[in-house]
Amino acid sequence: MTVISYRQALHDTLRAELLRDENVFLIGEEIGVFEGSYKITAGLLAEFGPRRVRDTPICEEGFTGVAIGAAMMGLRPVVEIMTINFSLLAIDQIVNNAAKLRSLSGGQLSVPMVIRTPGGGGQQLSATHSQNLEVFYAHVPGLKVLAPATCADAKGLLAAAIRDDDPVIVLENLALYNTKGEVPDGEHVAEIGRAAVLKPGRDITVVGYSRAAVIALDVARRLEDDAISAEVIDLRSLRPLDRETVCASVRKTSRAVVVEDDWLSYGTGAEIAATIAEGAFDYLDAPVRRVAAAEVPLPYAKPLELAALPDAGAITRVIRQTLEGN
């Protein structure tokens, strides 16, 4: 184990995969000369050259489609879309081509590609640059959507995505890039579609993914001081979704809170709550609650931004309410 940042884990994994497989190449805006808007690809153009690390003009639909076409031919493109907000410009290619080509061709073709893209707010980037649009993609059969919360998963899930034969969206998070944690040395490839219990507990299940899972874990650790034993589940994968790990936990704890950075209505929390309603209904001692972002275009002004995003205070409050409810 080595302690490195989430950013470094992503960078090192990209480098290792470029070294491992000649078919892997990186493509996106400003990933080469500029070394990435968030410096994930720093140094890779110098090491691997423009054939493997391809800077593109600003044209998300164009270069995402190019990557899909290259993947149909057996290459393994790793696309960087600078932030998930810009993926809206490529959504037709992602939803109508990447997700469907295997099915439409009756299994003749596959699309072994990865789209890495960070989401999340809290950086005062305001409404157009702070969204959590991952549920758009998690809704679509044919895609896989992974959301690493820890540094170890930044490595393990990205490596798994690159080696997978389906189109995989790897959701990164602006607020996690500088977090640090233990990362396994050498080969580390995680299993796609498996949630993780970040912290075991008896009294309540707290479910999150990406930044929300990290905050939930922090809250759960602090609640130990008050003799509250919260089990924290990191979904890690939004599609496929590991419903059984969630249900098994709630059958044990009988209470659940879902934390998400995206807007509440029709979000991941709704899917998890519905799953618990089917898979653990008879075990529930309180309604499942959701802690999600306020339903506004995220404002620029810091106090408004803070008011809109879920934080440790809101999560703590809802956990306590759920424990008090019967």
Partner: peptide
């Protein structure tokens, strides 16, 4: 033919 690599947890 929906996925090249199915995962155990797929619905």
């Amino acid at each position: 033919h929906v996925y090249a690599t199915p995962a155990a947890s797929m619905y």
